Simulated assay, not measured.
Amino acid sequence: MFAKRMLGKGGPQVSAIGLGCMGMSEFYGQIDRGAAIGTIHAALEAGITLFDTGDFYGMGDNEMLLAEALDGKREQAFIQLKFGAQRGPDGTFIGVDARPHSVKTALAYSLRRLKTDYVDLYQTGLDPQVPVEETIGAIGDMVQQGYVRHVGITNVDAVTIRRAHKAHPITALQFEYSLMSRDMEHGILPVCRELGIGVTAYGVLGRGLLTGSKGSGDGDFRNILFPRFQGENLAQNERLAAALAKAADKQGITAAQAAIAWVASQGPDIIPLIGARTVERLNEGLAAPLQLPKAVLAEIETAVPPEAVGGGRFMVPH
């Protein structure tokens, strides 16, 4: 059985590493549905219970893929689901809608696609047109009716986390966190710990940069939208990836395992999400240590100092 961690103070126990399913449907180049379903099956067999998806990943496809993979095994899974991002027929992102009635409509459609009666954790980011209390309150209504078991929030600041938590207890925050992206440490993580909110960390491999990835060309949004994958930024980040690989090799682990282990070692309230799309990558990620000695952590941090990272983590205009 894979190790467990508690998701938030007094929250549910889930696997200490979760599987991020986004890349199984789009964004990272060529898709192999059969390999994706096989990876989810292998994760279940390994004792992974936390699966992260979103209704806008593949515009519904990712939910249907997860439902197919979990057929007959729904109760083994903790489904963490994002909503709110709006997309046009061509796939373009056109805004966010987290109005109370939209919360409930989005959930209704997601339950159909997921072929389930409930979602374990329902979460969204900030809709600038809607007070966060209204959005979280609507999710809280769905908790009361049994359609949602836990309330989450994604990619918001510390002030918004406090406001949301007052509206309804927040179980978990989802935020990008890696050796390359450490901005949540300065205000957001302390607030989560004060309030007893767990963290599910995505982008733990720096969207692949920490393993030397350059993106895969056609259909890979990293090459188009993220400054860290462009020009001299990419060259600098490749140098950091090489330094990480060298530090990891001294410990007998891969660069990916070192990156995952670093995030997992930051506290038992943090659960890394790995975006594996094949069984091979899944097995590599799940073999990462969950706690590294302080001296090893320091060596890894020296290999990838945050101030040396080339480019910001946010999307650039296009």
Score class of each variant (00 low, 15 high):
G312N: 08
G275N: 03
P289A: 08
L173I: 09
V304M: 08
L225V: 12
E299H: 02
G217S: 11
P293V: 02
L111V: 04
M315K: 09
G312L: 07
F78C: 04
G187D: 15
T278R: 06
T49A: 09
L50E: 01
D71I: 12
Y109G: 15
R207V: 12
L189W: 06
S181R: 09
E299F: 02
Q129V: 12
T49P: 04
V156A: 00
K246A: 14
P131I: 09
V103W: 01
Q291W: 07
T154V: 11
E63M: 01
A36G: 11
S181H: 11
T302C: 11
Y109P: 07
H150S: 06
G206W: 01
I260C: 05
G47S: 08
M64C: 14
V204G: 02
P227R: 00
A247H: 06
V143S: 02
N237T: 03
G275I: 09
L209M: 09
Q236A: 14
D220K: 07
A3H: 05
L19T: 05
L66T: 12
V191S: 01
L225Q: 13
F78R: 01
G215V: 10
Y28A: 03
G310M: 04
M59C: 13
L107D: 03
P12W: 00
Q144F: 08
G8V: 00
M24Q: 05
A288P: 07
F229H: 11
M1T: 13
M1Y: 10
P128S: 07
G212N: 03
F78Y: 05
D127H: 06
N237P: 08
E280D: 14
P289E: 10
D157R: 02
W262L: 13
A264E: 10
L273V: 08
R239A: 15
F226M: 15
V263L: 02
Q76A: 14
Q144A: 15
H168W: 15
F175Q: 15
N283T: 14
I170H: 05
T171N: 04
R5T: 08
F78G: 06
Q129S: 14
A167E: 11
R74V: 08
D218V: 12
F83G: 11
A106C: 10
M59N: 13
D120V: 01
G72M: 02
F314H: 13
I253D: 11
A264R: 09
N233W: 04
A241K: 00
V263P: 04
I153F: 03
A106E: 11
A276M: 08
A259P: 01
